[in-house]
Every structure is written in structure tokens, then in C-alpha cells.
Design a protein around this nucleic acid. Sequence first.
DNA 1: CCATTTGCATACATTCATGTATGTATGTGT
DNA 2: ACACATACATACATGAATGTATGCAAATGG
Lengths: 203, 203
Amino acid sequence: MPARARNTQVERSAAMRARLIAAAKASLMDSGYGRTTAVEVCVRAGVTRGALFHHFVDLSELFAATLEEVCADIGRRSKEAATHADPRHAIVAYIETAWAGFGHPDFKIAIEVWLAARNDPSLRKELNPVIERFRRAATPQLNDALAARVGRSAEDVAFYRLVLEAMIGMALGRAVAPGSKPMGHEDDVIDLLKQLSRNRPNR
Amino acid sequence: MPARARNTQVERSAAMRARLIAAAKASLMDSGYGRTTAVEVCVRAGVTRGALFHHFVDLSELFAATLEEVCADIGRRSKEAATHADPRHAIVAYIETAWAGFGHPDFKIAIEVWLAARNDPSLRKELNPVIERFRRAATPQLNDALAARVGRSAEDVAFYRLVLEAMIGMALGRAVAPGSKPMGHEDDVIDLLKQLSRNRPNR
DNA sequence: CCATTTGCATACATTCATGTATGTATGTGT
DNA sequence: ACACATACATACATGAATGTATGCAAATGG
């Protein structure tokens, strides 16, 4: 294949699509869903709305793609963190990997879109597959690999839920804080969770 | 004072104001902030927008009044629950009273408005006093009565934060669930928290 | 090298929500 | 009873956001 002077058309197209998604993420990050309009996204991406509606038939489709990317990021970060996690305590390791995902500022994007989907039926329909996949992945009864890590007894599952809900609560707190700044006590809570998990009756 | 055949003007005015707030709560509850418009509220209240803008100069003002009422409800429910709570374990009692507030479906209304305030500067300005009051009330370092209940050591505060964040996480989960239905594991998590608090090193 | 597709911009039509200005009837104080 | 205020409705002006239809230049392929 001959060396091309410029990028091929499909490459630039994919790059534009990625730029639009990145712009949507940025806008969601610091303006929230309510103010993430088509023009807002396009201004950030440096294109007109023509470009946007060429790549996405709908705003809902753009948001779905955005949520998908954010979820993928969360998963990737968690996976990457898992390689460094404490191998002796499965739950402690899980806490670290999960917090690598939920504790990241980008999780605010997921919250924004997710919450918005409740109201907009079109958006909800578009987001449904992504959300459902995420929900299944986070439910020990439906995800055996997860159950293997966090345990299967009722107490284990309850503790797992506690960990998750606390993380989500802190992520929400960050999302509503001006500038999405982390609250002061996040690390304290995570440390406490690890400590509690170490002291739990053995499985 | 002679018995009046009809309500006085100010009474009916206050009733109308209350009806508008109730309509806003209902709309926020099942349509979310994004779809809670002036017409939506007024249709539910059975009046025209003239009535709304007569009682509230702004939509932001309506939302502020709504959030204030919801926060008051939460406080009232917590206070009421406190009379029934376990008197032997302060933290256990606190968990019960707090969950009486956060666990109530109406908390979704607070989440909706609160999150929206991040984007809308006018709304944020209007809501700021209510939010700030709430934040102070929920911070042991700033609320001595609370500190007396949950403890003052670093570990105590961390545990208190864990309780709170988990409750908020569950409230959010309920808010994004279709129909705002409670998730299955809420009571399990609350029970676990109580159990954990009983096993904590004494203060 | 020409025909066609692709990628994006421009312009338009439509919807919808806000806020304001104005009108009116009913209650209220003197 | 009369002047005035209050409570709400009606009508209007404006702005913003969406989605679509159209236009054009560049890339692709036969």
C-alpha cells in the first residue's frame, strides 16, 4: 500500500466522531446535561451542527455513544487498577479497583446522562443497552466473576452493595459540588471500607 | 370576629402558593427537572402561568421554595423517627432517623433540583441558602448536636460519612430507576450498617 | 478523469419555554 | 360605597434548541 500524504477519509471521519464525543464529555463535565446542547458541543468541537447531525442522527445517539465511552473508560481504569491491587484480600482489591472507576471525575458524566435518561424517552431507549450491560456487570447474582471476587453469601452481597452505594454517593456529591471538586472525606471513607472488609468474618 | 362565609383572600393566596409548590414537587417527582416547565406545573395546579408568576417572580424562586419544603419534610420525618429510634445505640438511632429522611421517595426531588442548580447560576443563587443550611446540618464539625450523636473522633466521622454516602447512593439509584422504585437491597444495606455500627470499638 | 459518494456547512421551518405587559374581577380598608 | 390592592388570566415578544433540506468541496474508485 502506498504511503498516503494525508489521512484517509474514513480516518478523519472517525477522528471527527471522536472529537464530537470528547466535546460532549467536556460539556457534560462542566455544564451538565441541561446545558449540553448541539451548538455547545459543536462550538467546543470547532464544527457546525451539520457535522454533528451527519455523524449522529440524534442527540440521544451522541449521548449514548458518550456514555458508552465513559463506561468503557471506567472499566479500563478498573481493570488497570486491578493489576496493582492487594492480592491477599479479594474484597479490598475490589474496593480499590471499583474506586478507580467511580472515584474518577468522569463518573459525573455518567451520572448526568443517566439521570437525564429518566425523563427523555428517546434518550432512555438509546441508553438502555449500555445501562443494562452496566447493571448486569455490577450485580453479583448476574455476574459470576464479580461474585467470585466479592462473595456469594447474603452478608457478602450486602457488604458489596454498601461499598458500591457509598462510592456512588460520593461521586454524586462531587458532581453537585461547584467545580466538581472532590469532597474532603472520600479517602477516609474508602480506607474505612477497606478496614471493615478486612475485619469481616471469613468466607 | 364574625364568622366568614368564605376563606379570606390571604388564606386562599397561601393555599394557591402551596398548590403550586405541590404541583412542582409532583412534576419533579415523575418528570424530573428537565421537563418541569412552567406550563407543566400550572396544568397540574389547574391554573395559568399568570398565577405562577404572580406568586414567584422566577422559576428559580419556585424551585427554591420547593426544595425548602422538601428539606423541611425530610427534617420533620427524621425528627419524628428519632422518637422511635433505639435509645441504647446513638449511631444506630441516627441511622434510623437519617434513613427516614433519605430513604423517602421525596428525596429524589431534592436530587433533581440540587443537581440542576449546578448548571443554572440563577437557580444556584436562589438555592444556595437552603443547600448551605443543609450542608452545615449534615457536617459534624459544624453541627454540635450531630457530633454528639455520631461521635467526634476521626473514625466516628468517617463511619458517619459512610452511612450518609451509602444512603445518598441508594437514593440516587432509586431516582434513576424507572418509576423511582426502591432497589431490592436497600434494607439489607441499612441492616448491615446498623450491625457494623454495633460492632464498632466503643467510644 | 469523470461519476459518485462522503463530509461537512448553510439556511430554513418548527416547536416550545420564558418572562412581561396588560386586562379584569373580586376582595378589602376607610 | 368608593378607591385601591390583590389574584389571577390573556396575549405578546423574544430567544433558544431541534431537526431537516439543501449546497458544495474534497476524496474515492472505476
